[in-house]
Amino acid sequence: MQTSEPKAIEVTDLTVAYQDKPVLWDIDLDVPPGVLLSIVGPNGAGKTTLIKAILGLVRPAAGNILIYNKPYEAQRRIVSYVPQRGSVDWDFPTNVLDVVMMGRYGALGWVRRPGKKDRELAMHALEKVGMEAYTTRQISQLSGGQQQRVFLARALVQDATVYLMDEPFQGVDATTERAIVTLLQDLRANGKTVVVVHHDLQTVTDYFDWVMLLNIRRIASGPVDETFTPNNLRETYGGRIAFMK
């Protein structure tokens, strides 16, 4: 292949099936370093599954996934994952600082406990998301937006190069949405690569510079101004009709 610079994420011919029911068909996706990419598509398009496949959380039936030319297992340290907010029980007995420190667990490895340095890193990450005043707050007493910011701080503390976020804008207030956008742009400015599962078509052009349109197969991916076209969108959301004729 004629690649000069390594891709941040390189997905080739990825098929994922749950009990022989395909969720993703032969997906190709190249994400160059330093872009802010949103994955867009209708419900059930396989957006979350694609993220989970990149993270090795689901096993593909075919295809390859590389992060900076190496498989995920070898690159774990430079990848950071923000799961959907609804995937955890927010009544769990823990506070904000503790959740953010979980971002250090990967670097700590087995058995070792987080120390003073980890605490400082976590505090620093909390400042970045504007949550430093809430360190000892029990997580169930946070608003949806604040919970999302805690999750982002946990990702920041991993100090990764590649960020994968599943619906970070889901059900957050306007302030948090703006804070997240600023944060994403900061990350890009520092040369990080950010992949975001997104559902609000209105904001794609404002927030992101790359986009992938997905509906079980890849419809298109590339810079927003080239890719986010009415034709491609029609094929993604009304794909059935466009394809049949």
């Binding site: 090795g56 959380l57 774990r76 799961p83 987080p114 946990r154």
Partner: peptide, 16 residues
């Protein structure tokens, strides 16, 4: 630490 993470956020635990 590991058990706490498992109970709180299985997906994240697997990802790291």
């Amino acid at each position: 630490k590991e058990l706490k993470l498992l109970v709180f956020d299985e997906g994240f635990a697997a990802s790291i």
